[in-house]
Amino acid sequence: MPTVSMTVNGKPVSGEVEARTLLVQFLRDQLRLTGTHVGCDTSQCGACVVHIDGESAKSCTMLALQADGAAVTTIEGLADGETLHPMQEAFRNNHGLQCGFCTPGMVMSAIDLVKKNPKASETEIREWLEGNICRCTGYHNIVKSIQEAAGNMGG
């Protein structure tokens, strides 16, 4: 089996994978980074969103081998100890999560939005979230969370 190497949450990792192994499987099953979730099999729910070299990407939709040499950040890599990233803190502060299953993907996706569009309007936030499905919150408090975080992240 081929070997894949990458940096995950700042640490170099490598492992043997099958050619068909998805990045999300490598993260969850081999690295035991189970914060990244799988909620569908058609690349639509966004529970698996991570950052690849700083860009949000669905880790169910790329092979582990495609991330060879990349810097990957998962939900586990955001906080500084127990100090939350401003986006995590905003989700906590605004009740932007309920069951927590879509949350890692939502947070990772939202951080990329604010990076690309620091002053996103409510409409732009809602449109950006097209690729992230939440069944609990009705998105109301997710949108509020992202708006607050954008302010705190200097947007």
Binding site: R28, L33, T34, G35, T36, H37, V38, T74, I75, E76, L78, A79, E82, L84, Q88, F91, R92, N93, H95, L97, G100, F101, T103, P104, V107
Partner: peptide
């Protein structure tokens, strides 16, 4: 009150069955 459970969910440390 802000939710007690959020810290683990927000940091990827939830413990779902498939985990």
């Amino acid at each position: 009150v802000k939710r007690v459970e959020d810290q683990r969910f927000l940091t990827g440390r939830g413990n779902y069955t498939d985990d």
